Amino acid sequence: MKQPVKGLDHVVVMVDGIDAAEAAYTKLGFQVQPRGFHKKLGTANHLMIFDTDYFEILGIVEDTEFNAERREWLKAGGGLANVALATDGADLAFEAFKAAGLNPDEPLSFDRAVEIDGKTEQAKFRTVRVPKTNMPVVGFFVCDHLTPQFVYRPEWAKHPNGARGILGVTVIAEQPTKWAPELEKYFGEGSTKREGEGLVANTGTQPIHYLSRKDYLARYPGVTPVRPGDHPALLSVRVENLAACEALLKKNGVKLLKPDSGRLIVPPSEAAHLTLEFAER
């Protein structure tokens, strides 16, 4: 059975200065893909590809009607901006979101050039965006890959830091549980549950955790969130070997925090305003 939403596809990290962000993520031990351009959207990106998901750093290179909201968002600093959801079809997702009362935009088609084996190909997508009025702190949208063979390639999923995939996303929200009804419009009835005073949303794959600022600071001591108020704050990444990852990052001169033996935290100053968490599971 085809599904309008079937988990997390990728995460978007907005950066104010894509050259510096590219250098920062190379220093963090990722295989950073060559820059791609979305001519229609006026944006450029670099991808960190994993086996079944990825994250991208995205910057504005030309002002267009499609990036006005992103330009406004960047005025308060960069960081984790969006979670893209996997789907069996943009049209299917559009109809499901409309029925759920999420007021989605019509599907938008765009592409970007990628070079594969010396040949230029066009990676093509259709996305469905949801307006701010229906945003449970996170800016969700659906991403329908029309040419997944030009995105998910095993040779691109090999990273010096041993990264293998996304473990989850953490959101700062002063009233975490108030977002449950809106989240269930995306992920279905019963897809959220309380975690202490927080909330976790089951996307179908990786979870999205909602924590109050107080609980966030307790879980990530020494990390100062870049943005005020409620916002997506942290991306957790799975690595094959945490000790090897730590050794590489230290060798590269990356400042690290180690709240316990099972986690490494990279503060926003080292990752273009994103807080990164590395763990084996």
Rank of each mutant, 00 (worst) to 15 (best):
R70S: 10
S109F: 09
G198W: 05
L92P: 02
Y54I: 11
L47W: 04
R70C: 10
P207V: 10
R70A: 13
G89D: 12
E246D: 02
G79L: 08
A90L: 00
A201W: 07
V142L: 10
H209V: 12
V11I: 03
R112Q: 03
R129S: 14
A21G: 07
I116T: 07
H159R: 05
A23I: 14
D9L: 08
D53E: 07
Y210R: 00
I166S: 03
V171P: 00
G101L: 02
H209N: 12
G7T: 03
R238N: 11
Q33F: 01
A218G: 04
V83C: 11
L242K: 08
S109A: 06
R129D: 14
T203L: 10
K27A: 02
L41C: 02
D16S: 14
F150C: 00
E72K: 15
E95K: 14
G229H: 00
G168L: 09
G7H: 01
A271L: 15
S109D: 06
V114S: 06
K132M: 05
D63G: 03
A113R: 12
T120M: 05
P221R: 10
E270I: 15
K258T: 09
Y210L: 07
R129G: 14
A68S: 10
A279S: 11
G17I: 03
D105E: 12
T203E: 10
Y152A: 14
K255G: 15
E95S: 14
Q149T: 13
P268M: 08
T147S: 05
A81R: 14
Q3F: 13
E155N: 09
E115F: 03
T87W: 08
R238G: 06
Y25I: 12
W73Q: 08
L41Q: 06
K193T: 12
T120P: 01
E174T: 09
D111R: 14
I265T: 12
T192Q: 04
L58S: 11
G29S: 06
P107Q: 09
N67C: 11
H231K: 09
K39M: 07
E182Q: 15
V237E: 03
R164V: 15
V13H: 10
M48R: 11
L47R: 06
K27V: 02
A271Y: 14
F55I: 00
A243L: 12
T52C: 12
L211P: 04
V200E: 10
V266L: 13
E106T: 15
D215V: 00
V266H: 07
L8C: 10
D16I: 10
E69I: 15
L92N: 01
L256A: 04
V13E: 01
G162P: 08
E182M: 14
P160Q: 08
L108E: 11
E270H: 15
V169R: 09
K2E: 09
D230S: 09
E115I: 02
A93W: 00
A20W: 00
G101Q: 00
A24T: 10
A244T: 07
Y220E: 05
I57M: 02
K214V: 13
K39N: 13
